[in-house]
């Protein structure tokens, strides 16, 4: 140890060392988590990339070969893949619109603290804890003729109920209904939590300025919710295909492939046709599209991550 000299001028290396010392005692507590995550996610991700460049197929007697980008080239001519992209978009964005609208309204109801609606706070959250697979079963039951009774009750008010699960368009709608049921609570919680952080003097000021209730929502609440809404949208798009179990039990991607999302197609390709190489290229292409869509907004949304706390 040498005697340090007079106050050093700003020295980057010294500062890094200082911070390093501050973190020194704690880094080893972080290490297991980082190793775990790298080994369990980054490594498989790279492995998937590798697989996607091979012809690996457990249904073929020929061993896997390196085929470069051939799988990716094939995707362009794969009508089923193109259709799955479209269906993914429908099953992500259609429920999302309703989740946002209903989630906002529900948050508004809770935020207004209307008397007699305490029970709503308790029950609105129920779907969040539902295993997605049971969510799918639940709606399959409801949409199954006789078993679910929906069409019976529609009949009572003079509507002839559609074939919920066996008509291609209706099947998309049925799955969307289940998705709205299942993930609106998430949106509600996000909006409601954000609303509770809004300073109340903003509302009071707007009242003194003569704003009506509707104007207050329009000019105070909604603009303040923009950032939250962006976060919600990013999360819901990224995790939109977590409805896999719902599709699995409700329609198995049918009828006639009309509800087959890209991850479902990758599942079929990889685990039923056992074409693992091709399935890898499907899911990675899908991931790349998601990232391309979300990258700009993700930066914006996540810039504060880690700053708090």
């Amino acid at each position: 140890m040498t005697d340090a000299t007079a106050a050093a001028p700003l020295d980057r290396a010294l500062l890094r060392r200082t911070r390093g010392r501050q973190n020194r005692g704690y880094r080893r507590f972080l290490l297991p988590a980082i190793v775990t995550i790298v080994v369990l996610t980054i490594v498989p991700l790279i492995f998937t990339l590798g697989l996607s460049l091979t012809s690996l197929s457990y249904s073929s007697i020929r061993g896997p070969r390196f085929i470069g980008l051939e799988n990716y080239a094939d995707l362009f001519g794969d009508a089923r893949f193109i259709a799955s992209l479209w269906q993914s978009a429908v099953l992500i964005f259609v429920p999302l619109i309703f989740q946002l609208v209903f989630g906002f309204m529900l948050a508004l109801v809770m935020n207004e603290r209307l008397p007699g609606l305490g029970w709503l706070r308790v029950i609105f959250i129920i779907p969040m804890f539902f295993p997605p697979i049971v969510m799918g079963l639940l709606w399959k039951v409801l949409f199954t003729p006789q078993l679910g009774g929906i069409n019976h009750y529609l009949g009572l008010i003079g509507i002839s109920g559609p074939a919920w699960l066996s008509d291609p368009t209706m099947a998309l709608i049925s799955i969307s209904v289940a998705a709205v049921w299942g993930w609106t609570p998430f949106v509600t919680i996000m909006f409601y939590t954000a609303m509770q952080t809004f300073p109340s003097d903003l509302y009071e000021a707007s009242r003194i300025d003569g704003a009506t209730w509707v104007q207050r929502i329009r000019f105070v609440t909604l603009p303040l919710l923009r950032q939250t809404a962006l976060v919600v949208i990013v999360f819901r798009i990224m995790e939109g295909l977590a409805i896999f179990p719902i599709i699995y039990v409700m329609t198995s991607g049918g009828p006639a492939g009309s509800t087959e999302t890209t991850n479902y197609y990758a599942y079929i390709t990889g685990f039923e046709f056992l074409k693992v190489g091709y399935a890898s290229s499907i899911i990675l292409t899908f991931l790349a599209i998601l990232v391309a869509i979300l990258a700009p907004s993700t930066r914006l949304v996540l810039k504060n991550v880690g700053e708090r706390g």
Binding site: L40, M238, L241
Partner: peptide, 16 residues
Amino acid sequence: IRMVPGMVYLLPYFVF
């Protein structure tokens, strides 16, 4: 990492 769809990880785990 948590946001990445699970299907992405599943194929390599299946093989491995």
